[in-house]
């Protein structure tokens, strides 16, 4: 759900704005106080400054690293393994009904 703020894309913008922090908090469903937004704006600016140090290097010809481990093709055979007991699974849910997880209303009725 877009809320009018600009998504963070492309080159790192520095420093980060309060609006950016509020947007990210909203996407992560975090309810932040004004003081927290203030503090996180400064913290995240420091993180982005560090990322900017990396971005400043000449990285032409260096492929992006998606994974640091020297591993490829970790695969398993297509064989059925035991599943969990449903009663045990649903016991961990705050509310269950009719063999299923019961969750609160997903969208506001508005």
């Amino acid at each position: 759900m877009t809320d009018g703020t600009t998504p963070i894309t492309g080159p790192i913008r520095h420093p980060i704005s309060r609006a950016d922090v509020e947007h990210v908090a909203r996407l992560a469903r975090l309810a932040l106080t004004d003081a927290e937004v203030e503090r996180l704006t400064a913290d995240l600016a420091a993180v982005l400054a560090h990322a900017a140090d990396v971005a400043a290097l000449d990285l032409d010809g260096v492929p992006p690293t998606a994974h640091p481990l020297p591993l490829r093709n970790v695969l398993r055979d297509d064989e059925v393994r035991p599943t969990l007991d449903r009663a045990e699974v649903l016991a961990a849910a705050p509310v269950a009904e009719d063999g299923r997880f019961r969750v609160p209303r997903i969208l506001d009725p508005s």
Binding site: R76, D78, E79, V80, R81, P82, T83, L84, R86, V89, L90, D98, G99, R100, F101
Partner: peptide, 20 residues
């Protein structure tokens, strides 16, 4: 089985019985 686990990939089972 499913993409990342050994639960059966099978339509029509009782709810939440093919989970891990």
């Amino acid at each position: 089985t499913k993409l990342f686990c050994g639960c059966p990939n099978e339509f029509g089972a009782a709810p939440n019985t093919h989970v891990c």
